[in-house]
Amino acid sequence: MKRRTFVKNSGLAFTAGFLPIPMFSIKQKKQYKMGLQAFTIRDAMAKDLLGSLKTVKSLGYEDLELYGFDSGKIAYYGHTATDFKAILDDFGLSSSSCHYGFSDYLNAPKDTLRKFVDTCIKGAHALKHSYITWPWMAPEQRTLETFERLPDLLNTIGEQVNQAGLGFAYHNHDFEFHTYGENTGFDMILKGTDPSLVKIQLDLYWAVHSASKTPKELIATAPERFVMWHIKDMDKITRDYTELGNGSIDYSEMIPALDTSALEFYYLEQGGNFAENSIQSITDSADFFKRNLKQLF
């Protein structure tokens, strides 16, 4: 058969129903780094920073969420942001988020807050962070008046942070799930903030501990906003923190049911109540996580 005749007949064949096989793109599974909130080992890091980081790396942790930013010196743990980034690089660790002390500026003049946010941005850029995170409010600040004006404040900070090429997130504890007026603080934050400017770092422990909705239900209200998680277990009797696998939260059942479409980072954390000490706790939690939970992501 001549080439011209073959091409002509082939064209007729396609019009007769022989359509080309469609090419489907294979959706790649997200690759998450095993994260640790450094607040967990704050005592060990204060005594031996380099030794603690070496241990963290040896346990399989890859990414740290930091705390304790020094805005006056733009420093972390006594080292300038640039120097601390070099230390992390030497250990093969990264840092994608930090908890910054925004609650100290809740009632500050706008210019003062803006200057503080600028220092956070400089530190975050030096560390190659993806997110700047609001982590806390002091007990006396947890009022209806605060939650009524908090969304606008978060939007303002989020806009400044986003313009710098970074993400901004709010981290919950238990008090956000308390009712202020007619709504919970958490609902007031979600409804009053711009989803493009303010994301959520959901502490799964506190959600189980204090929210009227399950973590699955909370995330389902706005899946695109829940970009980070904190993972820690709950003591079966006291409901305090405990090492992963020792408590009452069944993460092996919970995690597969959660919407992870927006999830970028997760961090194991234990704020206290260590069975022995903080280093042993991150050791035990890492072991349990790698054996039972890491494959669920």
Rank of each mutant, 00 (worst) to 15 (best):
M1I: 10
R4S: 15
R4P: 12
F6Q: 07
V7W: 13
K8Q: 15
N9G: 09
S10A: 14
G11I: 12
G11N: 11
L12H: 12
T15L: 14
G17V: 09
P20I: 03
I21R: 15
I21S: 14
K27E: 14
Q28L: 13
K29V: 02
A38K: 06
T40N: 01
T40H: 04
D43T: 11
M45A: 11
M45Q: 07
A46C: 06
L49C: 13
L50M: 15
S52Y: 05
V56R: 09
L66R: 10
L66P: 07
D70V: 03
S71Y: 13
G72W: 10
I74C: 14
I74R: 15
A75N: 12
Y76W: 15
T80F: 11
A81R: 01
F84R: 13
F84D: 14
D89T: 15
D90T: 05
G92M: 11
L93G: 09
S95R: 06
F102D: 06
D104V: 00
Y105P: 09
L106I: 12
D111T: 13
T112P: 07
R114L: 12
R114F: 14
F116N: 07
V117M: 01
C120Q: 06
I121W: 08
K122C: 14
G123A: 02
A126C: 05
L127Y: 00
L127A: 03
H129E: 00
Y131W: 12
W134D: 06
W134Q: 01
P135T: 04
W136G: 00
E140S: 11
Q141M: 13
Q141Y: 11
R142H: 13
T146D: 12
E148T: 04
I157G: 08
E159P: 03
V161H: 08
N162F: 01
N162L: 01
N162T: 01
A164K: 05
G165Q: 08
G165M: 08
L166R: 03
Y180K: 09
G181P: 09
T184R: 02
G185P: 04
M188G: 00
M188Q: 06
I189T: 00
I189Y: 00
G192Y: 04
D194F: 00
V198E: 04
K199I: 00
A207M: 08
H209Y: 08
H209R: 14
S210D: 02
S212W: 10
S212I: 05
E217M: 03
E217A: 08
L218H: 04
I219Q: 10
I219R: 03
A220I: 06
T221Y: 00
E224V: 00
R225P: 02
R225Q: 12
F226Y: 10
K232Y: 12
D233H: 08
D235L: 04
D235A: 07
T238D: 08
T238L: 07
D240F: 07
T242V: 07
G245M: 14
G247I: 09
G247R: 08
S248A: 10
D250T: 11
E253Y: 11
P256T: 09
A257M: 13
L258Y: 05
S261N: 04
Y266E: 11
Q270C: 04
G271K: 01
G271N: 09
N273R: 10
S281G: 03
I282Y: 02
S285L: 02
F288C: 09
K290A: 15
R291C: 03
F297S: 11
F297V: 09
